[in-house]
């Protein structure tokens, strides 16, 4: 395929993916917004007013970046996982396989589509949060970079999950048993300074801690960990996951007999 054809095929993939999650917006865009509104009301307003400040910032403002990031992570991941697995299940993945589209275009299409949903939901949650608190954007470029990189990373993760999945249950195991606990324990609701020293060290192996803190630094200007290290870690994970997903796709893992 020449460059123009590659761009057309990539655009087609992205449009198809975006059209899918927009078509089913009551399932994809509304629920995370409602869930996050509940978090803002319960943890931010009701409980947060008794917690007081964290690192000199109101508890409501402190949890907003983490909650936005939580929405981005879960929605990017689950969008690609469910979309690609549905394609496998309905066999419409064959439409792509019989076409001359290179595998990297297929992967990029799903990943960009998943990131689009993650970022879309993140934007909705950000707008909702403005009804509860005021946000100063300390480092706009860094904020954007971290959230986009995180969305891309978890979209790739969702793709790998869907490639390996054999039934619908398999695409909900990772979000429920891995992503959610790691996100909750990744400093969304608290500073790791509050943890005993041992648990602080354990927490440092949680990759989501780095993303949440880098994002929080971009918005609030505070972080529990060095932001440069977080950026390098996210970038490295993206490269490793991308190569793994592409290798699996080239081998036909989960899609070719």
């Amino acid at each position: 395929m020449n460059t123009r054809q590659l761009l057309i095929s990539l655009w087609t993939m992205v449009v198809k993916e975006v059209r899918r999650f927009v078509r089913i917006w009551p399932q994809t865009l509304v629920p995370p917004s409602i869930t996050m509104t509940m978090y803002f009301i319960i943890f931010g307003n009701l409980i947060g007013s008794r917690v007081g400040e964290m690192h000199g910032i109101s508890y409501m403002s402190y949890i907003v970046p983490g909650l936005i990031m939580m929405s981005v992570i879960t929605n990017s991941y689950s969008n690609v996982a469910s979309s690609f697995f549905s394609n496998k299940f309905q066999r419409s993945v064959e439409e792509m396989m019989v076409s001359p589209m290179p595998n990297w275009v297929i992967l990029a299409g799903f990943v960009i589509g998943g990131a689009a949903r993650g970022l879309g939901v993140g934007l909705i949650v950000t707008v909702v949060s403005l009804f509860f608190t005021h946000l100063d954007l300390h480092h706009p470029f860094l904020t954007l970079m971290v959230v986009v990189m995180t969305a891309l990373l978890f979209s790739i993760g969702g793709f790998i999950n869907a490639l390996l999945a054999k039934k619908f249950d398999d695409i909900s195991i990772i979000p429920i048993f891995v992503l959610t606990p790691l996100t909750y324990l990744g400093g969304v609701f608290y500073s790791i300074d509050l943890l005993p020293e041992f648990w602080q060290k354990v927490t440092m192996v949680n990759p989501i801690l780095y993303m949440v803190n880098a994002f929080r630094y971009g918005i609030l200007g505070i972080s529990d960990i060095p932001v440069s290290g977080a950026l390098i870690a996210i970038a490295a994970f993206i490269v490793v996951f991308w190569c793994l997903a592409l290798w699996m796709l080239n081998r036909g893992k989960g899609i070719r007999s």
């Binding site: 054809q5 057309i8 078509r23 549905s86 309905q90 419409s92 439409e95 001359p100």
Partner: peptide
């Protein structure tokens, strides 16, 4: 290729299925 079993997204519009396939071919 016209396969033995239906292999398109049942939820997509008819026209979209065909135009998407065209897009896959650039």
């Amino acid at each position: 290729v016209v396969p033995q079993e239906f292999n398109f997204s049942q939820f997509e519009k008819v026209e979209d299925i065909i135009l998407t396939q065209a897009g896959y071919y650039g």
